[in-house]
C-alpha cells in the first residue's frame, strides 16, 4: 500500500515537473525546436525579449533566443531560425511592432532581387532602417499641429485683424449688387432679343410673299437654263477627256505614229547613231576641212 502511494505520488510529481518545464520553455522560447543561430545588433529594441517571433517577409521562421544589452548601449540579439528556412544573404533586420498590444518581432527583409546565397549559422544580419514608430508619428503630428497653429494665427492676423474679412464682406455685398445689375441688363437684352426675333419673322414672311412674283420666276428660269448649260458643258468636257484618255492609251501601247515615237526605241537608236556619225563627220571636217571643202575660184 505504502509502495503504491509512493509510486502514484512520484508519477504525479514527475508529470507536473515535466509539464512545468516544457510549458515554460515552449512559452519562453516560442517552441521546443532547435534551429540554427543568427545574430543581429540593434540600437533600440523596445519590449524585445526571448521567445518573440522572427519574421522573414512576414512569415514566422524562428524566435528570439536571447537579448543582451552591451556596454555601448547596443542590443546583441541571438536569433534562432528553424532549420527548414534559409535567410537570403543581404537581408536586413528591424524591430517591428506586432498588433496593438505592444508586442514586437524581429523582421528580416530580403533584398530585391533575392540572391542565391543564404546566411550561414552564426552570421550577423545587418540592421535595416526601422519603420516609423508611434513616437515618430506623434512628433510629426505635433509638427503638423504647430504648422496649423502658425497658419491659424497668420490667418487671424491677416484676415481678421487686418480687415481682410471686412473687405471680403464688402466684396460679397458689391458682387450681389453687380449681380442684380446684370440681371436687369439680361432682362433688357432678353426683351430686345424677343423684338429682333419678331422683326426677323416679319421679314421672312415678306420674303416668302416676294417669291411668288414674276421677276423671281424669270430669275429662277434663267438660273435653271444656266444650270442646264453648265451640265452640257460638263458632259462635253467629260467626252473630250475620254477621247484624250483613249489617245494617251493608244500612244502608251505604241499604236499609231505618236505611239511608236513614244515607245519604239528603233527610231531613238537610229537617231543616236546618226548623231554620232554626224559628230564624227563634223570632227573629221574640222580636222580635215580640205578633204570636204575644196573651193576653187579659178
Amino acid at each position: 500500500m505504502r509502495r503504491r502511494n509512493e509510486v502514484s505520488v512520484g508519477i504525479l510529481m514527475t508529470a507536473a515537473v515535466i509539464v512545468l518545464i516544457l510549458g515554460m520553455v515552449w512559452l519562453a522560447r516560442g517552441g521546443l525546436k532547435n534551429g540554427y543561430p543568427l545574430h543581429a545588433r540593434f540600437t533600440w529594441g523596445q519590449n524585445l525579449k526571448s521567445g518573440q517571433p522572427v519574421l522573414l517577409a512576414g512569415v514566422a521562421v524562428g524566435t528570439v533566443r536571447d537579448v543582451q544589452l552591451r556596454r555601448d548601449g547596443h542590443l546583441d540579439v541571438l536569433l534562432s531560425i528553424d532549420d527548414e528556412y534559409q535567410v537570403p544573404k543581404g537581408s536586413t533586420a528591424t524591430v517591428k511592432a506586432v498588433g496593438i498590444f505592444g508586442d514586437v518581432a524581429v523582421a528580416l527583409t530580403p533584398p530585391l532581387p533575392a540572391p542565391a546565397a543564404s546566411y550561414a549559422p552564426d552570421d550577423t544580419v545587418p540592421t535595416g532602417v526601422p519603420s516609423a514608430d508611434i513616437d515618430q508619428i506623434l512628433s510629426r503630428v505635433d509638427s503638423i499641429g504647430r504648422s496649423v497653429s502658425v497658419l491659424t494665427s497668420a490667418l487671424q492676423k491677416e484676415v481678421i485683424e487686418a480687415g481682410t474679412f471686412k473687405d471680403l464682406h464688402n466684396l460679397v455685398a458689391s458682387s450681389a449688387k453687380v449681380s442684380a445689375q446684370l440681371q436687369g441688363v439680361l432682362a433688357e437684352q432678353n426683351r430686345n432679343a424677343t423684338a429682333t426675333m419678331e422683326a426677323f419673322k416679319n421679314s421672312a414672311t415678306k420674303l416668302g410673299n416676294l417669291a411668288d412674283s414674276t421677276q423671281i420666276a424669270a430669275t429662277l428660269a434663267n438660273t435653271r437654263e444656266i444650270t442646264a448649260n453648265t451640265a452640257r458643258l460638263t458632259a462635253n468636257l467629260d467626252s473630250t477627256n475620254a477621247q484624250i484618255q483613249r489617245l494617251l492609251g493608244l500612244a502608251q501601247h505604241g499604236n499609231g505614229t505618236v505611239g511608236k515615237l513614244l515607245t519604239d526605241t528603233l527610231l531613238y537608236n537610229d537617231l543616236h547613231r546618226l548623231i554620232r556619225q554626224a559628230d564624227s563627220l563634223l570632227a573629221d571636217i574640222k580636222a580635215n576641212p580640205k578633204k570636204y571643202i575644196n573651193v576653187r575660184i579659178f
Binding site: 502511494n5 502514484s8 505520488v9 504525479l12
Partner: peptide
C-alpha cells in the same frame, strides 16, 4: 515522513 506520503497521495493524486 511516512504519513506525509500518504497525505500527498490523498491530497494530490486523488484530487487529479
Amino acid at each position: 515522513v511516512p504519513e506525509t506520503l500518504r497525505q500527498m497521495k490523498m491530497m494530490g493524486v486523488d484530487s487529479v
